[in-house]
Design a protein around this nucleic acid. Structure first.
Lengths: 117, 117
DNA sequence: TAGCTTGTTCGATGTTTCACGAACGTCGAA
DNA sequence: TTCGACGTTCGTGAAACATCGAACAAGCTA
């Protein structure tokens, strides 16, 4: 588990962000992170193998959408809302609203938080 | 040249739109169409073969971002601004602003319109 | 009719992506 | 030090994608 790379704000590329958000699972991950809370890796519930989940979280991280922090042997993931807002103002908001409208990424939830309402 | 398919407003999918906008050429195409003017296919200038350009315009069309109209043997392409606005309010605007910020898709221009400013 | 123009489609190629299970490295607990 | 938990990485396929040139179809034009 080496220290993961995170792009700086200025390095965040629009194409990377768009590509990252072109997958339903990843949109779901962003949605559950949308409230700004940092989440433990193991809390995520998605219908894929853990290696695949790791892959998706890596794509989000590489694109600059999320930040991963390590603490001992476990990881915490958070949305880089402010960085995204600084780089591409309004983007995250409209994408989240659009995803909500479509209920895209509903397959993703958090443990002990069945995403009910 | 058969009649191309266009998704209805309600059928436009967020993932499709995001995927379509994850390529610099396609973002460039959207940018030159952003003023709302309908453009002739042959006016586009992009550093790819015409078969590749055709492919990119098809992806944009299939995603619901553009509309293609045929007139005799030639085609005219226009951005579906209103439809996009109805489906995903604000999305096109923020994406265009972000693309502007990054000068993404500058490789695409129009004949007799060298994208000067 | 013959030929030109226009854009699409086809086939091939190389790259990237998504998916999985298995193996691995690291850390904390026993 | 041994064990278990936690994520990452690897190896592998299947599918999708970007790209090109060549072939094609449809419509003008001569």
């Amino acid at each position: 588990m080496k220290q993961a790379h995170h792009p700086e704000v200025g390095e965040i590329a629009l194409t990377g962000v768009m590509a990252a958000l072109s997958d339903p699972i990843r949109v779901g991950l962003v949605r559950v992170l949308a409230d700004g809370r940092e989440r433990g890796w193991g809390e995520f519930r998605a219908p894929v193998a853990k290696s695949t989940l790791s892959h998706h979280l890596r794509v989000l991280r590489d694109a600059g959408l999320t930040r991963t922090r390590q603490e001992g042997t476990r990881c915490f993931v958070a949305l880089r809302r402010q960085d995204m807002e600084a780089r591409f103002p309004g983007l995250l908001h409209v994408v989240l609203a659009a995803a909500e409208e479509e209920d895209l990424g509903r397959q993703v939830s958090m443990k002990d938080d069945p995403h009910p309402a």
